[in-house]
């Protein structure tokens, strides 16, 4: 047989014999599509939310929009709506008496389509076919899509950085017998593991600082709440995810296996924990699960501090939960840890 044919065959064989490659090529995109589908397509829970503010036309507008099954209409006060914009839990607000005023975040990917639909319905229902419209884009830091996105990216970065930095590095050291060699010295074994966590914290500090500084400089992001709470959340998150990395690495000998294990832990969180869009878009039956995922706790906490001005007190809950989860994972990991 000709060499090119043999070479192609060898590539294909190696590819299909590597389970993790298979997963990343076929499994992961399918899962992601499925998840996005659940979040954005299902008629019921993933309707866009449109708020109608109080005023003489409120009820008429609600009736007109309610006819569209893709829109969930809510009669909300302006204050409540602004609060919900912070969590990207409402896409558009309708107000105004003479003119129609549409309030939305122009960076929200759903805004343009929603604007079209809302306009169409309201014009059809109106006696006046050329209803004048005013757009009121939200520009205040803390309420834009970018404000929603950045904390999510920070959370995702903390998760993957901690897991790879601790889990993968440990298995690599075990595989090359460095762990065994170190175990044969008088080195205190605790020191070695602590060094991984402390080094992780140092890296994390710079990573988070770079993302934040960039978002502040380029997008005008503002940290509305307490910096102490932000630092503590990031550090606790890193330690908790480091604990998960330690657990994944505690008995694993091959780097391929630990990579698979860590992806298994991280993927559901990347998809479900509200990195790119609000986790509230997922169906209700998933919400209890999503609510206890460590990345959801971290992302929600970061968003509360950065966008909603939360202080230490209001993120105490997620802080304690993350710390407890990380502690349990680490204790179990150390119980079953294998040096060689």
């Amino acid at each position: 047989m000709n060499p090119l044919g043999q070479l192609i065959l060898a590539r294909l064989r190696e590819f299909f014999r590597e389970p993790s490659a298979l997963f990343w090529t076929y499994g992961f995109p399918t899962l992601l599509t499925l998840a996005l589908g659940m979040a954005f397509q299902n008629p019921d829970p993933k309707q866009v939310v449109v708020a109608v503010w109080p005023g003489p036309d409120q009820q008429r507008r609600i009736d007109a929009l309610q006819a569209d099954p893709g829109i969930r209409v809510e009669a909300l006060s302006e204050e409540e709506t602004r609060r919900r914009f912070l969590g990207a839990r409402v896409t558009m607000a309708v107000s105004g008496t003479r003119d129609l005023v549409l309030t939305y975040d122009p960076r929200d990917p759903e805004a343009p389509a929603t604007r079209c639909r809302v306009l169409q319905h309201l014009r059809e229902a109106s006696s006046e076919p050329l209803l004048p419209v005013q757009d009121a884009p939200i520009e205040a830091p803390g309420a834009r899509y970018i404000d929603f996105l950045v904390p999510g990216l920070i959370g995702m970065n903390i998760l993957s950085g901690s897991m790879w930095g601790i889990g993968y590095a440990l298995v690599e050291a075990r595989k090359r017998k460095l762990l065994k060699r170190l175990a044969a010295t008088p080195m205190r074994r605790g020191d070695f593991l602590v060094s991984f966590f402390l080094a992780r914290l140092l890296f994390l500090g710079t990573e988070v600082a770079v993302i934040l500084a960039f978002a502040m400089a380029v997008f005008g992001l503002e940290v509305q709440g307490s910096w102490a709470a932000l630092v503590l959340l990031a550090a606790t998150g890193a330690m908790a995810f480091g604990g998960l990395g330690l657990l994944a690495a505690s008995r694993t000998r091959s780097t391929e296996t630990v990579a698979g294990l860590m992806n298994l832990i991280m993927l559901p969180m990347f998809v479900l924990s509200g990195v790119f869009f609000s986790a509230s878009r997922f169906p209700d039956f998933l919400q209890p699960v999503i609510g206890v995922l460590p990345l959801t706790l971290l992302n929600d906490g970061l968003r509360a501090v950065i966008n909603e001005g939360a202080g230490l007190g209001s993120v105490a809950g997620p802080l304690v939960a993350l710390a407890a989860g990380g502690w349990i994972a680490s204790v179990v990991a150390l119980r079953i840890f294998r040096w060689f």
């Binding site: 090359r176 017998k177 460095l178 044969a184």
Partner: peptide
Amino acid sequence: RERLGVALQETTLA
């Protein structure tokens, strides 16, 4: 351990 020096068969140090 303070009093032993060990060179394992095949270790890759950092």
